[in-house]
């Protein structure tokens, strides 16, 4: 049985060298080659590949951000020329990666490793952990990449009004309404700059730049009124936190 492979790299020659190496594996079929993360997301949805060979530095959204947009990402072999941080992250999570330029032997080794781990469900968890880890660092924590239907939305963090927990998702509110991101509140609490974003409530994180005033609400609670007019609940534990940061 053959396996489907998708190659995602923004440099044409980098793609062609992978295609060339893959030709030595009769059971690997290249379903599609993509030149950026947008094409990558589409192709992965369409072909449901068994393996993707993924570059990291790419236009608009990088390889990690692209993976975040895919619900059940397939196995990945990363290929990068130089990215100190990414390499550290790979090593921390024991994920295989290729350093460009790589030769046929090195490529074969990576494929062999992938085959060995194929039936091991652990790899998906590893990828997830890797993404969590990577999203804590610049430039990823300066923006949030979200899939909105078939469109991909890049939201600079300063454009966020507030975040609201919604089951397994987080609603990211902006001037264009809200977008769903499948991350946890505590993840965002970690990622976002604590001097700009405060968890005002168990289910809410608010952008301080957007607050116009804080009103009392019912007995022990408060509510933050944003510039947009939106009201964000402030809990009893959230209120002192907000007050401290706003210097009230």
């Amino acid at each position: 049985m053959s396996s489907k492979v998708i190659i995602i790299d923004d440099e044409p020659l980098a793609r062609s060298v992978v295609i060339e190496y893959i030709q030595n594996f009769p059971d690997l079929v290249v379903s599609q080659v993509c030149s950026n993360g947008y094409e990558g997301v589409k192709a992965i949805q369409q072909y449901k590949p068994d393996l993707i060979i993924l570059d990291i530095q790419m236009p608009k959204i990088n390889g990690f951000e692209m993976l975040e947009l895919i619900e059940n990402p397939p196995a990945v072999i990363f290929a990068t020329a130089f990215d100190e941080y990414a390499i550290k992250a790979f090593e921390a999570h024991a994920i295989d990666y290729l350093l460009k330029p790589f030769n046929q032997d090195r490529f074969e080794k990576a494929i062999k490793k992938w085959r060995e781990q194929k039936n091991n469900s652990n790899s998906e968890k590893q990828t997830k952990q890797l993404l969590d880890d990577v999203s804590l660092t610049a430039p990823q924590n300066q923006r949030i990449v979200i899939k909105d239907g078939s469109k991909i939305k890049i939201i600079p963090v300063q454009d966020i009004f507030y975040l609201e927990a919604a089951d397994d998702f987080v609603k990211v509110f902006t001037k264009e309404g809200y977008f769903l991101k499948n991350k946890t509140m505590s993840h965002f609490e970690q990622v976002l700059d604590a001097s700009q974003f405060v968890r005002s409530h168990r289910s809410y994180i608010v952008n301080l730049q957007q607050i116009t005033r804080i009103d009392p609400y019912e007995k022990d609670n408060h509510v933050a009124i944003l510039r947009s007019g939106a009201k964000v609940p402030v809990s009893r534990t959230g209120y002192p936190k907000l007050k401290a940061i706003l210097g009230l």
Binding site: E11, L13, A14, V17, E20, A81, F82, L99, P101
Partner: peptide, 18 residues
């Protein structure tokens, strides 16, 4: 310029074959 250099070498690597 590691990124530039390694990517250029990678391109050369691809061209050598074709």
């Amino acid at each position: 310029q590691p990124h530039f250099l390694f990517n250029s070498l990678n391109s050369i690597n691809a061209l050598i074959g074709s």
